[in-house]
Amino acid sequence: MTGLFSEVFLGALMFGAVTAAIPLLLAGLGEQMSEKAGVLNIGIEGMMLAGAYLGFVGAFYSGSLWLGFLTGAAGGVAVALIMALLCVRIGLNQIVIGIALTLGLEGLTALLHHFQFSRSYPRLPAANATVIPLLSDIPVIGPAFFKHHLIVYLALALVFGMRYLYRHTQLGLNLQAAGDKPAALDVAGIDVIKTRTIAVLTTGALAGLGGAYLANVGAGLFIPFISNGAGFLGIVLAMLARGRPVWVLFGALLFGVCLSLTTAMQVAGINIPTDVIQMLPFLAVMIMLVLFGRRASLPAALGIPYERGTR
């Protein structure tokens, strides 16, 4: 117990927090783009699972983590393609299809895992970290933030890439218009369906990547239901962030710390159910909402399929 707040412990705790936050961050950023474009993507949990499974399969058979990330993202895109086809192109109910995709991918990945890996439970070797010189020598913060796999830094950079995209590019504006007033975008000569499809497919790629990170770097193996609600957390983060990518990052880190804390408590042998700690981030956010809850600024056309010529 004495070593609970030692430098090493805090460093490890923060390292774990960042590792746990990355999948949430990727899912949150992805969901944010879908929501901006007016698609409530509840299938994101399924996309993460597809990414986790295919990412693991890719990395396991090729021996390359990067190829694993690629196949993971491709897996997410494949699921997103179904979502885009059914919910954007022909306008089926997004909640029905989203939940159906999540259920289906939960079952399918668990099933495939059973036939492929359930006897051996193979593991990947630990991901080699890219240590950033100088910065990684800072006590506590150094080992926590600057000794990760390269993909972590890329994910962090993506936050600012997204910020730039939404603020300074035509595509970013188109995405927001597709969610706020799709008819206006259509009149301006931009294809709403195409814009929304881009958003949903990007969501799939990011969620798939998040899933692949979860399996390949976070756990080192694939187990059924590995995402364990991370996709739903991504939805919560995206909605709380009110369209700001940086807020998704802060939210993801907050949840990451709590997830990391549960593991640390178990290691330290502290005898309270992990459920108590798992409740913390939600409690914090609910209290924040109760205290500062204002009208949520969600896109006006969120969840409404766009069909030209209807009001």
């Binding site: 939805i235 909605m239 159910p273 459920d275 108590v276 939600f282 609910m286 009208r295 949520a296």
Partner: peptide, 26 residues
């Protein structure tokens, strides 16, 4: 929150379901 503050109920109910599941276990 939804009735008086207009806070979107999808987020709040999703979070309350995570909380509720943990609370039930506790």
């Amino acid at each position: 929150l939804r009735g008086y503050q207009g806070v979107n109920e999808i987020i709040t109910t999703l979070m309350m379901t995570f909380l509720g599941t943990s609370l039930a276990n506790v």
